[in-house]
């Protein structure tokens, strides 16, 4: 098991170095960093001095190595637009995005799995048909529309929930902030989380439904019935567990996507997360932020994939052999 994790970590480092080089190309060759940093009236002599000072005259491999070494220390340089270290900017906004993604994922799992199981077991019932109709809506309505509808209903018309921002936050440790411990923070996260969760929930529901229908046809389910086990045991102990491997895969990758692409939801709800920061950096060609964001997302997916692989082994003993033997 330990050997497997170490091997995977080495592979992960390879992936991150590759992504780091892409980030470097982005950083170095899209636009001129000096032009971005200085004003229009800056004389050419100062530009040359700055160029020398930033090391932009060194050979490309040297620059690339320097970029990677700095990235490994979480030093992504100074943002062009904010004139602040990029790592601080991202660090300040990361908790908001991660918290939103976490809450949305929990919501989609807690609602999606039972709905999927229910629609698979009671295919002809009215409630199952309602769920399936809703899932069609959830999968086809664009995120921003759902967000705006929610704001119109719960913030504008009913006035129950705030329409923007994160509410009051509490500091935990040196840099993590959480809105989950205050009343206004909790109220603020409901609508963005639902908006983000709706698509995931329908996806999980449809996946669980399809997998359940498949597994319920399996021989071991028929044998479990032939042994007189109760329907509940057959469904939840024997069938549901066998649907989990594909569900884990999709949920893991979707969690990555939620974090990486929550941009629209964050914009609709003015959520002070990384998505907004990334959008601003694109508008202002703030390359250091984009490069750092790229690396962060790659890191996130690498970690998620590792966790997903370990969860496979926890669920399916047949995969444990492969991992132990590795």
């Amino acid at each position: 098991m330990i050997a497997f994790i170490i091997r995977r970590l080495f592979a992960s480092i390879g992936v991150l170095i590759a992504v780091g080089l892409i980030a470097f190309v982005l950083f170095r060759y899209i636009g001129d960093p000096v032009n971005q940093m200085v004003g229009i009236e800056t004389p050419e002599s100062e530009r040359v001095a700055l160029r020398q000072q930033l090391g932009l005259n060194d050979p490309a491999p040297v620059q690339a190595l320097r970029f990677l070494a700095n990235a490994a220390r979480l030093d992504f340089g100074i943002s062009y637009q904010f004139k602040q270290p990029v790592s601080e900017l991202i660090g300040a906004r990361m908790p908001a995005t991660l918290e939103l993604a976490f809450v949305a994922s929990i919501m989609s799992l807690v609602a999606g799995i039972p709905m999927g199981v229910y629609t698979a077991l009671h295919r002809r019932s009215a409630l199952a048909k309602l769920f399936e109709a809703l899932s069609l809506v959830g999968i086809s309505l664009p995120t921003f529309l759902i967000g705006i509808l929610l704001i119109y209903l719960f913030a504008v018309t009913l006035g129950w929930l705030p329409s923007f921002g994160r509410g009051d936050v509490v500091h935990i440790g040196s840099w993590w902030t959480t809105g989950l411990l205050t009343k206004s923070g909790l109220k603020s996260i409901i609508m963005p989380a639902i908006t983000l969760a709706l698509f995931q929930m329908t996806l999980i529901m449809r996946l669980v439904r399809a997998e359940m229908l498949e597994v319920l046809r399996a021989d071991y389910i028929r044998f479990a019935r032939a042994r007189g086990l109760s329907e509940r045991k057959v469904h939840f102990r024997h069938a549901l567990k066998n649907t989990l491997v594909p569900v884990i895969t999709v949920v893991g990758l979707q969690l990555g996507s939620i974090v990486a692409f929550s941009i629209i939801t964050e914009t609709v709800f003015s959520w002070p997360g990384m998505g907004q920061l990334f959008l601003q950096s694109v508008q202002n060609v703030d390359i250091p932020i984009m490069a750092a964001y790229l690396l962060f997302i790659a890191f996130l997916f690498v970690i998620i994939n590792l966790v997903v692989d370990l969860l496979y082994a926890a669920v399916d003993p047949r995969l444990r052999v492969a991992i132990h033997g590795a």
């Binding site: 399996a218 021989d219 071991y220 044998f223 032939a226 102990r237 024997h238 066998n242 399916d316 047949r318």
Partner: peptide
């Protein structure tokens, strides 16, 4: 009434 099916490879739940 007990029943035994054809394929022992698929009659047992692989995860238990």
């Amino acid at each position: 009434i007990g029943m035994i099916f054809q394929d022992p490879l698929t009659s047992l739940n692989p995860l238990l």
